[in-house]
Design a protein around this nucleic acid. Sequence first.
DNA 1: GATGAATGAGGATTCATTCAT
DNA 2: AATGAATGAATCCTCATTCAT
Lengths: 220, 220, 220, 220
Amino acid sequence: MANAIEPRARSGDSTGVDSESTRERILDVAERLFAQRGLAGTAVRDIAREADLTAPSLYNHFDGKQALYEAVLTRGVEPLFGLIDRLGQADQAEENSIHVLDAIMDHLAEHPDIAKLIQHESLTGGASLSHIVHGWLGPIVAQGLAAMKSNPDTVWSDDEQPMAVAAWIHVILGHFAMAPLLRELFEVDPLAPEQLERQKRFLRRFAQLMLSGADQASED
Amino acid sequence: MANAIEPRARSGDSTGVDSESTRERILDVAERLFAQRGLAGTAVRDIAREADLTAPSLYNHFDGKQALYEAVLTRGVEPLFGLIDRLGQADQAEENSIHVLDAIMDHLAEHPDIAKLIQHESLTGGASLSHIVHGWLGPIVAQGLAAMKSNPDTVWSDDEQPMAVAAWIHVILGHFAMAPLLRELFEVDPLAPEQLERQKRFLRRFAQLMLSGADQASED
Amino acid sequence: MANAIEPRARSGDSTGVDSESTRERILDVAERLFAQRGLAGTAVRDIAREADLTAPSLYNHFDGKQALYEAVLTRGVEPLFGLIDRLGQADQAEENSIHVLDAIMDHLAEHPDIAKLIQHESLTGGASLSHIVHGWLGPIVAQGLAAMKSNPDTVWSDDEQPMAVAAWIHVILGHFAMAPLLRELFEVDPLAPEQLERQKRFLRRFAQLMLSGADQASED
Amino acid sequence: MANAIEPRARSGDSTGVDSESTRERILDVAERLFAQRGLAGTAVRDIAREADLTAPSLYNHFDGKQALYEAVLTRGVEPLFGLIDRLGQADQAEENSIHVLDAIMDHLAEHPDIAKLIQHESLTGGASLSHIVHGWLGPIVAQGLAAMKSNPDTVWSDDEQPMAVAAWIHVILGHFAMAPLLRELFEVDPLAPEQLERQKRFLRRFAQLMLSGADQASED
DNA sequence: GATGAATGAGGATTCATTCAT
DNA sequence: AATGAATGAATCCTCATTCAT
């Protein structure tokens, strides 16, 4: 519960462009709360309060809770679409995949709520799921499958390859989305910078392993 | 607040196990709805309606929404605890791990909602998370780590081993919990019997790979 | 995306009387909406939107919803007051009545929303009702009563005369105010020009009938 | 404005059949308020308060505001349907019409809000209008037209007959629906018993007049 | 064991209005 | 004269829960 007394606690914004900053502030808060509590578990009033306004004011910026949710999702996932574009132009599928995974990890590390949002969407079969899948995960998966097929050393049969790619996704998203569980389990904060670095290194080797079935990566 | 003393007030059910069956029916529906929509997103009335009674009647069987939720979690996770017990007694850590994973997969396959419940709990940092972690996942992880350490061929450094174990968990849970996403992505139902069989085979090889870094499994 | 509606769709009017035309535009829209949905059922924002501005802008022209409502009523009813003035000066009460009814019909035909507004006011016992009654209907009624009394052939007793005059009013207002009902009932649009013409003819004969109890009107 | 302090002020109902009586009590209050203020102008909470319960409790009896509104309308108009049935069986169309008008007047006199509800519906073009028209007004109008056509003395041409029938409706409904206006205009309460009696007598003569164009009724 | 009725708390959203720009 | 942003009040409605029957 934030403070219920001071409705105005603006820090130091005397700049005129309050509008855009308010919108972003709302999105930031909403992203955090939706990620923590899910769509149904988050009250519009809570978002508003933490963004330093009243619930009705929020409706000056977004058409409603669902619209806000979708804006959060869009803002979070859209940048990942850009990564995909660069993916299609590369020559070396396999090596490229590694770099894209790295970039994705970096983005998710900076916005760890996005992974949670995606898992929420997936769990509840939300309406935006289709958009996420076809715009973002689909191309990545296609790229992963291509890399796998073009690798003569792969240990996965055609049947297994989709599952191997799915495993990638689960491992990447899971690291962020299930942070509370991992914290409890390993008594380490998965989102701490050094831990993120470790996970990135791990993921690189893991990708190699999934791709070829053998470990060729060297410590960097 | 209902009575905190008698959580079970089942009396003489002369006609047979009607009472017990109602309780189970409620748990079944609740498990399904909680898994689909999460705790906050599920209305007690909806559970009651689908279990063919009214919301107040539900309170004859459970002390409230939270209590029902916990009963669902307990019923879903408890059977897994039994698996853990047998785990501790075995000699061959590695081989045993494989069997336990198989058993877990079988259980999750029969109750696919459990994986979703665990992910919901993890995402929202629910109160029952600690119980799940220490009662169930903890021992499995310990066992997995032990198997890894005792394997001289492992490719994972001490640092990486927890992440490798976490990867297991993500892949197992993810297959069930993110079924809607996978369905959209691969246009295959991950919960269809033949697909579950494939996933089990895949998981066995995946476990080998994670354990040793090389694939030694043969088709069984 | 906050608002999906563009409040500005003004074409290219750099001509002078923008202010006055805006005020009239608002009054036109408000009259239509208040007539359709009543005072409570009409949102200021809806009026503003249909008048191509935003709700706050509307406050530059009117002091508030209630003030706007009263302005609409006044603008609608005021012209009728003029008719009344001419009424008092005439000699032949009866014949004059007929002409005034004609003039009222003509005015209502051009502004069919006014009848609706009056009925809304009457149904809800609105605050402006008294103004309408004493300023407009009162004199008409007095005139009608006088015409009746001065007619030796009238079939109505003193007791009945007010009800006969009320019947006039109901028939005149009803034709416009209950247009939706009549449309559904007779499958004819009461506001269509030829139908209005018919109603005017009918009303003339009806007035004769009410006045004297016998039909003396010939087709004109 | 009821008292906001005592939520329970039940008079003397120790009988068990509270349910049905509550439902009726709500309908009574709702009928009154909807008639006074219209659908949009009436707050569910106001209805609930005057019916001695809280707004949420009202939802145990009705599915929502709209549903309550329709229930009020149905309850109010349905009894009139019964009158229509008896209408079809009679031989003497003309004489019968008079009796039916009497019966309708009696019903509306006992439930003066119904006329207001119908006018509200007609003004706003409500969804239930069609039901009212085809179930109730339609047959009455048909009967009225038949009586008119079968009367050789009628002064109304075929063209005018629908308008003459419409005039009936306006006069009948108007007397109740526009009661506030009439009160202000004639300083007599149209709903007072003796005034209702007068209006009924007037209406009988008015019907004669409209039917034949001449007055044949004698004082009773 | 089941239910209809009731309710306090809360939830999303609308509304009329103000104000700085 | 116009508007974007803000807001208190209110609106409809849902929810978990209680209780008498």
